[in-house]
């Protein structure tokens, strides 16, 4: 054997020794599930004991199809799916119902999002963001469509419309789940999270945003009007209270004068 093949042998040995590792791109996140793999069977044969899912770290959100809707969960978010309901245990998610137009979805089934403070029932075609804060208060931002809230202790259901944001939390000493005043969605923060969460083509996303933005503006105007009316009502009630107080003081003064007059009369001082 001559020495002319040594370079080839050397190259073969080097190539054999190289370790090649392929790592999947982390743009779209995946799930860590309990029981293992339960997210695969959510549509067909959901686990009776429920399925716990945690969104793994990634650039984008982890996506899940469930009851015809899409759930986008930000990294670290934990959700629990059982039967007909979905619960957010930790973190933040975006829920998108079917892409069909609202009028085509009248007969469509609704999606129930459970919380310890009551239930949220989504209407057809809804896009919403739900966030659990560190103190367990929940915040819902309705991007499109509307959501009905049936909260503990409240007789009436609350409807949160397109472009509105609502925070609700623990039951108070009167047995009512606490609700803050509705606010318009915080446009900049919501848009950034929407884009980051759904990882859409920016052009498609821009079209969708342009469709909903006018209604968000209307929502902000409605809230402003409502708040100014509330302030005016409060001012009017304060003025009325002030007027009554002054009237009472005047009445008391008159009575005192009358008593003094009677006293002087009875004691022959006048």
């Amino acid at each position: 054997m001559g020495f002319r093949y040594w370079p080839q042998i050397l190259v073969f040995i080097l190539a054999y020794g190289l370790e090649v590792e392929v790592q999947a791109a982390l743009e779209q996140g995946s799930w860590f599930s309990e029981p293992e793999g339960c997210e695969m069977n959510l549509e067909n044969s959901p686990e009776e004991s429920g399925c716990l899912l945690r969104a793994l770290p990634a650039q984008g959100a982890s996506q899940l199809s469930w009851k015809g809707a899409q759930v986008y969960a930000f990294p670290g978010t934990v959700i629990f799916v059982q039967g007909e309901g979905l619960r957010l245990l930790k973190g933040e998610l975006i829920l998108k119902d079917s892409d069909l137009e609202l009028q085509d979805r009248e007969d469509a089934s609704t999606i129930v999002l459970g919380t310890e403070y009551g239930r949220m029932i989504s209407q057809a075609g809804v896009w919403l963001m739900l966030k659990r804060e560190a103190d367990h208060w929940m915040e819902v931002d309705v991007l499109r469509g509307s959501v009905d809230l049936k909260l503990l202790g409240h007789q009436e259901k609350l409807s949160v419309g397109q472009g509105f944001s609502l925070r609700f939390g623990p039951v108070n000493e009167k047995g009512l789940s606490q609700v803050e005043l509705p606010q318009p969605v915080r446009v900049q923060s919501v848009l950034m999270r929407w884009l980051r969460g759904t990882q859409k083509d920016p052009e498609v996303w821009r079209t969708k945003v342009q469709l909903v933005l006018p209604s968000w503006q209307t929502a902000a105007e409605e809230i402003a009007l409502w708040q100014s009316q509330t302030v005016l009502r409060h001012l009017a009630s304060v003025q009325e209270e002030e007027r009554k107080r002054a009237q009472r003081a005047l009445q008391r003064q008159r009575e005192d004068e009358e008593l003094r007059r009677l006293f002087r009369q009875k004691n022959y001082l006048e």
């Binding site: 945690r54 503990l152 623990p170 000493e173 047995g175």
Partner: peptide, 22 residues
């Protein structure tokens, strides 16, 4: 994750009781 679920169930119960007690 199971602990988180147990905590959630505990909060469920707590909130239901809090709504009934008054």
């Amino acid at each position: 994750m199971r602990t988180l679920l147990a905590e959630m169930r505990m909060r469920d119960f707590q909130q239901e009781v809090a709504a009934l007690v008054p």
